[in-house]
Design a binder for these strands. Sequence first.
DNA 1: ACCTGAACACCGTTCAAGT
DNA 2: ACCTGAACACCGTTCAAGT
Lengths: 200, 200
Amino acid sequence: VSDVADRRYHHGNLREALLERAAEVLAARGAAELSLREIARDVGVSHAAPRRHFPDRQALLDALALHGFERLAEELTAAAASRGRTSFRTRVTRLAAAYTRFATADAALLELMFAGKHREVDGPLHEASDRAFVPVLELIAEGQASGEIIPGPIDRPGTVLLASLHGLASLINGGLLAGATVDSTVPATIDILLDGLRPR
Amino acid sequence: VSDVADRRYHHGNLREALLERAAEVLAARGAAELSLREIARDVGVSHAAPRRHFPDRQALLDALALHGFERLAEELTAAAASRGRTSFRTRVTRLAAAYTRFATADAALLELMFAGKHREVDGPLHEASDRAFVPVLELIAEGQASGEIIPGPIDRPGTVLLASLHGLASLINGGLLAGATVDSTVPATIDILLDGLRPR
DNA sequence: ACCTGAACACCGTTCAAGT
DNA sequence: ACCTGAACACCGTTCAAGT
């Protein structure tokens, strides 16, 4: 068994193996306790081997964050796909639930994704986060077209919605909202937001 | 000079000196790069000396977070103190500006304060965060009393406001809001929120 | 091309010993 | 009571060397 595994690392999938194990450790213990050497050990490779695929520890963390944004984009896209005839409010609530579910399922990953480590305006991480937010902004645009959301630059209502969802998830993850759960707060929050975002 | 400084550490202010230097390093380079040994060196003490005051690294980080919540409480309290006759909307906007100013002034401190490290419902950190939010909830209660905020449990509108402010600050700190600044987004966000929170 | 092993400079934590 | 110095087990990073 082990020689087969060893061989496969020489065939180009060490990178994936490292990422997979790193994601597990991240979710279980957080980025601060993620050790490159430990992950190399777990995966059965020398501590210097990861260097071929990730020049340093931050590069591995960046790759985890990038993967997180890609998964978030997928889940938001899936949630935004309207199944049958559903009201605008329902669709927004579904998208919001998908966002907060993702965010609260892995608090350490969320922190890593939104940490101020990569404030460069360029870079693949920034592009990935932009892509992840596309379904949210598209839904807002639809709402504007159908007259359920105030007109004007899409960033205005878009930012409010994104900030609210992200803040809600952060507060829940931080344990700062006493007995609040996603299910109990998301619909109430969306109600209030949609009312504030209604044309007037 | 140095023997005076050395003497003073023996008089009970090493703890303060460590916290002060740690806060500087946190703001400059983030929690991940905060080294206990380096701070001890900077402050002119052996690497084992901090142990009297902070049993481990996390205890120092917790103390920094606690101090952050205390400062946040002070600034929010100051911002909530109504100077002259000002509209409810103005007062909320001032409070929101104070929150986001604090949050964006030191991104690393904000991350530390709201990190999911201390999810225990008890503990001094949780109490400190509760205290910091008091001015926000009080203002909401006033708004309810004067009929400018929807009635009902205060957590409902309170959570929405707190989540929006915190999310806005986090997104700005993470560089995920293209050209957004606090000054440009806070008033617009408050307008939308107050509309959504208005009785109907 | 991809990985190993030794080496370097750094950690956090512990503990006997000093004053 | 408070701090020091040595020790331990870990890091991330680098680089010559192996296959």
